[in-house]
Design a protein around this nucleic acid. Structure first.
Lengths: 146, 146
DNA sequence: GCACTTTAGTGGACAAAGTCCACTATATTA
DNA sequence: TAATATAGTGGACTTTGTCCACTAAAGTGC
């Protein structure tokens, strides 16, 4: 099926690509947030997660760890907690204006990360890149038919 | 150049892809080594690094941190250190048989990671995947001409 | 040769990130 | 109603990584 040289090519690409993204991510992270904190606040914003447990589950984090992160967010005025009306063991999270502003900033930096990634390419190459990404996305994440 | 929707597609792909690789990596990491330790021992083996400072530089690690990792490796019989003949401040590293065996095991697990990645795809899809990876690799890492 | 600066490796002290466990208070199930 | 499961929290801990200072050996300019 796959030759050893092809596996090696894919492995090398994966290593190089994740490394490159990691380097570009440093710019995204030039914020008060750590990598995981960034994922958490984006998860709250983007997926409209309402409770700590959802976030912990969706991101695969320890619930205790998540709890502490959310406490820090609250302390820094990024979100507010209100008791859940449907389950009084639970809590609902709302981003404050400050929190939303930060999310917006992270979002723009992430967009910039992509532009940086492609900065050295010309229009035709960017088109090729996008098409290749689309192929991978469909194959891995969208269960495209043959 | 890039539409916002395209940027979002790329961002989503990057997030999903790194997440998926991270999950598959857990299997690779079912060894006595942490992620960074794995990178270090592979670097010693693959790039034939001979000195701690080369490893620290190549992997972007703190030299103190690297020193401690290498000490652990020595303690666990994965490598031996010999004084450099050309620079007596420095040290040359050699993997022991045990170290080489571990590298081989990591290598096989990494290959298996790729197979797992593509496990749900049929032959034609695997071919498409490989071609797309090749395109990305050339565009990002091989400075291919237009 | 001799002062000066740089470099390789190490360890102490610390910070950041993440895990594990126990606990309380609710909710769910039988 | 009794037993069990779940949400959230905090204490204690480990792992991971950073920063700084130090020694000993090179390298550099003269």
């Amino acid at each position: 099926m796959l030759k050893q040289t092809e596996i090696t090519t894919i492995r090398d690409f994966n290593r190089n690509y994740t490394k490159l993204l990691g380097i570009l991510n440093r710019r995204v992270l030039e914020t008060p947030l750590s990598w995981t904190e960034g994922r958490v606040i984006l998860e709250i914003s983007f997926n409209h997660d309402k409770t700590p447990i959802e976030i912990a589950n969706n991101l695969g984090l320890d619930k205790s760890y998540t709890s502490r992160i959310l406490n820090r967010f609250e302390k820094h005025g990024l979100l507010t907690k209100t008791p859940s009306v449907t389950d009084s063991r639970s809590i609902e999270l709302q981003l404050t204006d400050k929190g939303s502003t930060l999310v917006h900033e992270l979002d723009e930096r992430s967009d910039q990360q992509i532009r940086d990634l492609l900065a050295a390419l010309n229009d035709n190459q960017i088109k090729q890149f996008y098409q290749a990404i689309t192929v991978l996305d469909q194959l891995l994440f969208e269960k495209a038919v043959d």
